[in-house]
Design a binder for these strands. Structure first.
Length: 703
DNA sequence: TAGTATCAGAGGTAT
DNA sequence: ACCTCTGATACTAGA
C-alpha cells in the first residue's frame, strides 16, 4: 500500500488542500475572555494552574492539594479558599466492605466450596486464602474463628516488625530525611486520594478506579522521591531505588488493594492494563513477589499441603521461547540464574512445584508479560495479559547443561485482546502488515521526528479539515522580557548542582534522567536558546521532539482523536500544544482549536500554590490554521493527560509553551484526553458542547 | 550506543 | 534465613 511507515516515506503522500478533509474534529476549544476584564490580569488570585484530579474522588473545587511544596504547611489553604472537606460527598462510597481488615474481625462468611474433596484451609503460617474466588464476597471475608485469632496477632506483629525495620533502616542510613521527611507528604497524598483507611473504604465492586488510584499515588510518590534523591546528589552506599522505597511506604501504610492471594482475575485490574514496576503489580494484588516470577499459594488437600500457581511474570529473563501471543513456554525458577546461565539443576519445589500442581489441577493462572519499554533506555513494561492454563510440563537441558523445568501455558479463550494487540502494533511499526484504515502514514509530512499515522477504521471519512502542520508554538514576538541566566552545562544540566536552570526550578530538575516529569510544577523552567547545554540535556524534554509514536484516529463518536502506539508512563511528555499565539482580542469566534490557559481548571491533585502565581497569563494559542498533534486531543472530564506551562528563556526574551504530560500510565491505543477547562466569566457566544467522555464524573458538557 | 556486570533490595515463604 | 524473570548505575565492547 502506502509503502512503509518510515519517517521518510511521508512526503510521498502530499496533502491536497482542495480535496482532502471536509470534517472538523469535534474537539472544540472556544476562546473566552474574562468578563470583567479583571480575571485575565489578575491571574495571581485564581490560579490558572489548577487541573482536574485524574481519578481524584473529590468534587470540583473541593479539595485543593499541594503536597509537593512545603508538605508541612500544605494544609494551609491554597489560593482559592477550598471548601470544607466534608461539605458534600458526591463520590461517597456505598456500604463499606472490609477487604482486608486486620483490626476488625467480622463474622466469617462460609469458606469457598471445596472442589472435589479438596479442603481449603489456611496455611499454618497465617494467610487467609481463597483459591476459588469470585470476588469480594468470599475473598474479603474471614476464615473461621480460630484462624482469625492467629492471623490477627501474627499480622499485627508482622506489621510492627516491618515498621520498626523501616525506622531502623532510616536511622542506620543516616539520611534523616528519607522516610521521615517524606511522611507528611505521604499522608497528604493518601488523604487526598482517600487511601488512608483503605480497609474500610473499599467498594464492593468496580474498583478499577481504586486500583488506578493506588498506582497513581505510587507513581507520584516514587517520582517525588526520585527528585528528592536527585537533589541530594549521589551518596555512595545509599539506595537509589525509589521504586522500592515508595512501595515500602505504601505497603506499610496499607495503601494497597487485593492483598489476598486469589486464583483468577483480580478485581479492578483489566486485561491490557500496563505497569512499569514490579512493585506496582504487588500493590494492586496482581503478583505479590517483588522479584520472583511465580506467585503461588498453598492449601491442604486431604492432609497434604499443596501449592498452586496463581500468576507468573514472563520477562524473558530465562530461556523462554517466544510465542504467537497466546502460548507461553515458561521456564521454572531456581538453579541459580547467573547472567543467562544456569549453574545447577532446577528442583521441583516452590514455584515449580506450584506450576506442576496447577497443571494437574487445571486452575487458571494470571500472566503478566514483561517487555522492553521502547520509550525508555533501561525500563520495562508489564502488561496484564489475562488468564492462562498450563497444558504441559517437561524437563529440558538448558544451555549450560542443567535441568530446567518448562511449562506450556495457553491463553484461556474468550478474553479481551491483550498482548496480541502489542504484537499487531509491532507489526505496524515494522511495516510487516498493512493496516486497515490507514489514510496517511505520516500526516506531518516529516515535520516531526516520528511519523504520525492518520487512520480511520470506523467510517469513510478521509481526514480532518486542512491545516498546516507546525511542530512548535509560533510567537509573533517574545512572550516577555527576561533577565534570566543561561546555563553552561556542556554535558547537560545535572541535579544537585548550582546550574541556573536548576535554581530556576527551586533547586530541582523537573525531569528524571528518563525524561519523566518528576513533580507537578507551577511552571517548568526548561533550558533556553542561549543555554550552552546540548539538545540532549534532560532539561529540554519538550524541545527535542516526540518520544512516543502517536496516531490521529477517528473515534466512534467524538470526531478525530489522539492516541499512542507506545505505552505511556505517568509523567511522560506527550507533546506540546503548538499553534499560533494569539494576542489581544484577535480570537476568531468559530475557532475550535483554541487553547486558553486562562480558563478555570479543576484542581489536580498536586499543584503547589505556596508560591504565588506570578506568571503573566493568559496565554492563548490557536491551532486552527497551524498546529501539531496536540490539536487533536479531545476533552474528557476524567482525563489521562494534563498540561503544564513551560518557560524557555534567555538573557533577553522568554517564551512560554504548553506541555502535555501523562497523568497516569496509559496503555497503547487508549485515547489521550485532557480537560479543556471552563471559561471564566461570561461565555459570550460560546457554544456549550455535549461531553461524550463517558466518565462517571462527567460534567455533561464542555467548551 | 548497546550489552553486561554489579549489587542492594523488598516481600514473601520456609525453617 | 533464604529466595528471586529488579532496576539503576558503572563499566566495557564495539561500529
Amino acid at each position: 500500500m502506502e509503502d512503509s511507515l518510515g519517517p521518510d516515506s511521508a512526503p510521498s503522500v502530499p496533502i491536497d488542500k482542495n480535496k482532502v478533509f471536509a470534517i472538523k474534529p469535534l474537539r472544540c476549544l472556544v476562546p473566552i475572555f474574562p468578563s470583567q476584564g479583571g480575571a485575565s490580569s489578575s491571574a495571581t488570585q485564581q490560579s490558572p494552574f489548577a487541573f482536574v484530579a485524574p481519578t481524584g474522588p473529590f468534587p470540583p473545587g473541593a479539595a485543593q492539594f499541594f503536597p509537593f511544596v512545603a508538605p508541612s504547611e500544605s494544609h494551609r489553604q491554597g489560593g482559592s479558599a477550598p471548601n470544607p472537606p466534608n461539605n458534600e460527598k458526591p463520590y461517597a462510597i456505598p456500604s463499606p466492605v472490609p477487604l482486608n481488615s486486620f483490626r476488625t474481625p467480622a463474622p466469617a462468611p462460609a469458606p469457598p466450596p471445596a472442589d472435589n474433596g479438596a479442603k481449603l484451609t489456611t496455611r499454618r503460617s497465617s494467610k487467609n486464602i481463597t483459591p476459588y474466588d469470585d470476588g469480594y464476597t468470599q475473598s474479603d471475608g474471614y476464615e473461621n474463628g480460630f484462624t482469625i485469632d492467629t492471623e490477627d496477632s501474627s499480622d499485627a506483629i508482622k506489621r510492627k516488625r516491618k515498621i520498626r525495620k523501616t525506622v531502623k533502616g532510616a536511622q542506620a542510613v543516616a539520611v534523616s530525611s528519607s522516610e521521615v521527611d517524606i511522611d507528611p507528604l505521604v499522608n497528604h497524598l493518601l488523604k487526598s486520594f482517600q487511601l488512608l483507611d483503605i480497609d474500610t473504604m473499599l467498594q464492593a465492586d468496580s474498583n478499577h478506579e481504586l486500583v488506578q488510584r493506588v498506582v497513581l499515588v505510587y507513581n507520584l510518590l516514587r517520582r517525588k522521591i526520585t527528585q528528592l534523591d536527585d537533589a541530594k546528589g549521589v551518596i555512595p552506599g545509599i539506595s537509589r531505588r525509589a521504586d522500592l522505597r515508595a512501595g515500602t511506604i505504601l505497603m506499610n501504610k496499607g495503601a494497597r488493594v487485593n492483598t489476598k492471594r486469589r486464583v483468577g482475575s483480580v478485581p479492578g485490574v483489566d486485561i491490557g492494563d500496563v505497569f512499569f514496576f514490579r512493585m506496582e503489580l504487588c500493590l494492586v494484588g496482581l503478583h505479590a513477589p517483588i522479584m520472583a516470577g511465580i506467585d503461588y499459594l498453598s492449601f491442604k488437600v486431604s492432609g497434604d499441603e499443596e501449592p498452586i500457581a496463581v500468576s507468573i511474570v514472563s520477562s524473558g529473563g530465562y530461556e523462554d521461547e517466544e510465542d504467537d501471543g497466546e502460548v507461553i513456554i515458561y521456564s521454572g525458577q531456581g538453579g541459580v540464574q547467573r547472567s543467562d546461565k544456569l549453574l545447577m539443576d532446577q528442583k521441583l519445589e516452590r514455584g515449580n512445584l506450584a506450576l506442576e500442581k496447577s497443571l494437574h489441577r487445571g486452575n487458571e493462572v494470571r500472566v503478566v508479560r514483561g517487555l522492553k519499554d521502547v520509550a525508555s533506555a533501561t525500563g520495562k513494561v508489564y502488561v496484564y495479559d489475562g488468564l492462562y492454563k498450563i497444558h504441559e510440563s517437561w524437563i529440558e537441558k538448558g544451555k549450560s547443561g542443567c535441568n530446567v523445568f518448562k511449562y506450556k501455558l495457553i491463553r484461556v479463550s474468550g478474553q479481551p485482546e491483550g498482548f496480541l494487540l502489542w504484537k499487531s502494533i509491532q507489526q505496524w511499526r515494522d511495516g510487516v502488515t498493512t493496516r486497515v484504515g490507514v489514510i496517511l502514514p505520516d500526516l506531518t509530512s516529516g515535520a516531526e521526528n516520528l511519523p504520525i499515522c492518520l487512520v480511520n477504521d470506523v467510517d469513510s471519512e478521509k481526514g480532518p479539515a486542512y491545516f498546516t502542520y507546525s511542530p512548535s508554538l509560533k510567537y509573533a514576538k517574545p512572550y516577555g522580557s527576561s533577565k534570566s541566566l543561561s546555563c553552561r552545562c556542556s554535558n547537560g544540566c545535572q541535579p544537585a548542582t548550582t546550574c541556573p536552570c536548576v535554581e530556576k526550578n527551586n533547586g530541582y530538575l523537573p525531569y528524571s534522567s528518563g525524561g519523566i516529569l518528576l513533580s507537578h510544577n507551577l511552571i517548568v523552567h526548561e533550558c533556553g536558546p542561549s543555554c550552552l547545554c546540548p539538545p540532549s540535556c534532560r532539561n529540554r524534554v519538550s524541545q527535542t521532539g516526540l518520544k512516543l509514536r502517536l496516531e490521529v484516529f477517528k473515534t466512534k463518536n467524538k470526531g478525530w482523536g489522539l492516541r499512542s502506539w507506545d505505552p505511556v508512563r505517568a509523567g511522560a511528555f506527550i507533546c506540546e500544544y503548538a499553534g499560533e499565539v494569539i494576542t489581544g482580542n484577535a480570537i476568531d469566534s468559530d475557532d475550535n482549536y483554541v487553547f486558553d490557559a486562562g480558563r478555570v481548571f479543576e484542581p489536580l491533585e498536586l499543584v503547589p500554590t505556596d508560591e504565588p502565581v506570578k506568571i503573566p497569563f493568559p496565554l492563548v494559542v490557536s491551532a486552527k490554521n497551524k498546529g501539531n498533534v496536540g490539536r487533536f486531543m479531545n476533552h474528557s472530564c476524567s482525563p489521562n493527560v494534563y498540561w503544564q506551562p513551560i518557560m524557555r528563556e534567555n538573557e533577553e526574551e522568554s517564551y512560554l509553551h504548553i506541555g502535555l504530560y501523562a497523568i497516569k500510565h496509559i496503555a497503547p491505543l487508549q485515547e489521550l484526553t485532557f480537560d479543556y477547562g471552563i471559561p471564566r466569566g461570561e461565555k459570550k457566544g460560546l457554544v456549550k458542547k455535549k461531553c461524550l467522555c463517558e466518565s462517571s464524573k462527567c460534567r455533561g458538557f464542555f467548551y
